Computed example of a mutant assay.
Amino acid sequence: MWNHVTHWLTGATLGALRGIWSVTGLRGLPASGAHALVRLAFDQTLENVTGAGAAPALWPAGEKGVDYAHKAVYAAVTGLVSDHLNRPVLVSRAGARSH
């Protein structure tokens, strides 16, 4: 049960982060790639701090592949939905014109 709770809470929290990125103009594939890395790092750090998981270097290759693929799919879907629902309204226009 605790595993499901932490997965859903971290997914929601980091999904909100991706929403903030969309609103501030960090959008598209580069933002989704960065989001996948943030999600992966956050999950692995949380598991190591709580003692719930082994260090990723100790994981079997197959488990790493599945975990990385899940994070990539999560980030891609979250990015597509977030970019679609959130207009980039907080994008800075500083420096866009010389005067």
Rank of each mutant, 00 (worst) to 15 (best):
M1L: 11
M1C: 10
M1A: 13
H4Y: 11
V5Q: 08
T6S: 14
T6P: 01
H7Q: 12
H7E: 10
W8C: 09
L9Q: 13
L9E: 07
T10E: 10
T10I: 13
T10V: 13
G11S: 12
G11C: 10
G11T: 09
L14A: 04
L14Q: 03
L14F: 15
G15N: 06
L17P: 00
L17V: 15
R18D: 02
R18S: 04
R18G: 00
G19I: 02
I20Q: 04
W21H: 06
W21P: 00
V23D: 02
V23M: 07
T24M: 06
G25E: 05
G25D: 05
L26T: 01
G28W: 07
G28P: 02
L29A: 14
P30H: 08
A31Y: 03
S32K: 00
S32W: 02
S32Q: 02
G33V: 10
A34H: 01
A34I: 05
H35S: 03
L40P: 00
L40A: 11
L40D: 02
A41V: 14
A41S: 15
F42A: 15
F42G: 02
D43A: 13
T45M: 11
T45R: 05
L46S: 05
E47V: 01
N48E: 14
N48Q: 14
V49M: 12
T50K: 03
A52H: 11
G53L: 00
G53Q: 01
G53W: 00
A54F: 03
A55E: 07
P56C: 00
A57N: 07
G62K: 07
G62R: 12
G62H: 06
K64P: 01
K64N: 12
D67I: 01
D67R: 07
D67C: 04
A69E: 01
H70G: 08
H70W: 08
H70T: 09
Y74C: 08
Y74I: 07
Y74V: 10
A75G: 08
A75M: 09
A76S: 14
T78F: 05
T78D: 11
G79T: 00
L80T: 04
L80I: 07
L80R: 06
L80E: 05
V81Q: 08
V81T: 10
H84Q: 11
H84G: 10
N86Q: 11
N86P: 01
R87Q: 14
L90V: 10
V91F: 11
S92Y: 07
S92Q: 08
S92I: 06
S92T: 15
R93F: 08
R93C: 06
A94T: 13
A94C: 05
R97M: 09
R97Q: 10
S98G: 07
S98D: 12
H99K: 13
H99M: 08
